[in-house]
Design a protein around this nucleic acid. Sequence first.
RNA 1: GCGAUCGUAGCUCAGUUGGUUAGAGCGCCGGUUUGUGGUACCGGAGGUCGGGAGUUCAAGCCUCCUCGGUCGCCCCA
Length: 412
Amino acid sequence: MAKIETPRPIRGTQDMLGDTADRFAHVVETFDRVRKLYGFRRIEVPVFESTAVFSRSLGESTDVVSKEMYSFDDRGGDSLTLRPEFTAGIARAYITEGWQQFAPLKVATHGPLFRYERPQKGRYRQFHQIDAEILGASEPLADAELLVFADHLLRELGVSEGVTLTLNTLGDAASRDAWRAALVAHFEGHRDGLSEDSIDRLARNPLRILDSKDPRDQAVVATAPDIDAYLTDEAQAFFGKVTDGLAAAGVAWTRNARLVRGLDYYRHTAFEFVTDRLGAQGTVLGGGRYDGLIENMGGPHTPAVGWAAGIERLAMLLDAPAPFAPTVIIALENDSLLSFGQKALAALRGAGISAEMIATGSPRKRYDKAVKVPAKVLVSITLADDKPVANLRSSEDVPEHAQVRAVLETLG
RNA sequence: GCGAUCGUAGCUCAGUUGGUUAGAGCGCCGGUUUGUGGUACCGGAGGUCGGGAGUUCAAGCCUCCUCGGUCGCCCCA
């Protein structure tokens, strides 16, 4: 008989248990708690959409569209795509569900995203993000609120140490176009000082030269013009109001004049919370204002701003969470008392106390096994004078001790 | 797509210049010891040494190919 071959997991997917899963859950739970403090409503959007949702959002980034997306034809012949980002789907929903009526709309969501990439530290093909967006708000107040929320979340997670908010402005459409033209002129003028990759970028995506990692590009990048000289008065004022909002809330930031977004619908605020603790993947949380997107997708002109953060990356930055364990661990040391043990379990759980029981294997070894469970209270159940006896032992003088004793005493 | 590096038990790993029947710790199962009691002892199950081909009297170890993991480049919505 041929050996049955177990199907392998797909490259870039993860199975999580124990510490990894606990960290993941902690990020999601903390996000869900903090987002309520800021009035962001939970929304759900589909994991897959018409390919057009994302290809329209990504515009002329043909490499990304053709090589990085999980696209397939369904049985009806329609091209569908597993979502590689949240924003496009939310923008689509905003238009097709008539959510304009709720503007300004503050929403939050989290879940899996899919990108066909070579996995490496903090990068997976199925990865997960938390996401927050404000749709239909043109004021810099919205940008500031979103940034304060992000900063607050990182502090709640205890990962703000070593994480820096880097901030830039891409200006309004006029500022952005003028700056872009100046950058292209600058790089064209120093073409021979650029790496091959950057010469290639010059034709494809010139703004990207600014964050080239190639040391050969550093001299030319260092002398490249900042956007500041090209900002309109309005754009300058907008950026000022965002930073005023951060100052008022006590959020620290640093200017990164080299921080850019490749897509044209990004306007004004662009930001990333970065760290050097994640290898080559420095960005922990990133976002910006995308005033042009919804219009690009066939909707009404709708200013919007948002951010997203990788759950796996945040989870890696977390301090080790407490190991998963019940409050009570029961060692059933005599098999004739199984029913008593099950009654005790039901009573404890009914009283809102998490409890587990060890009732298999050699009875004389169950106590030793129970000791190794990091529970707050250990209960051993033995037989004495033909009656069940429950003995309690607390790892410390935990407050649950008395409560557990009270519940067990009701069993008679 | 490109590069570096690693694949030995369920997990973490050892394995000498190529040389008998591939080991340890943890975990699992059974037994001994103790008996308001955690760290002890004995035993057991569990391996196509990632896979294939080659060199050799002989390959976990050397060569080539291949698959997979990790990290980096490219890309980054």
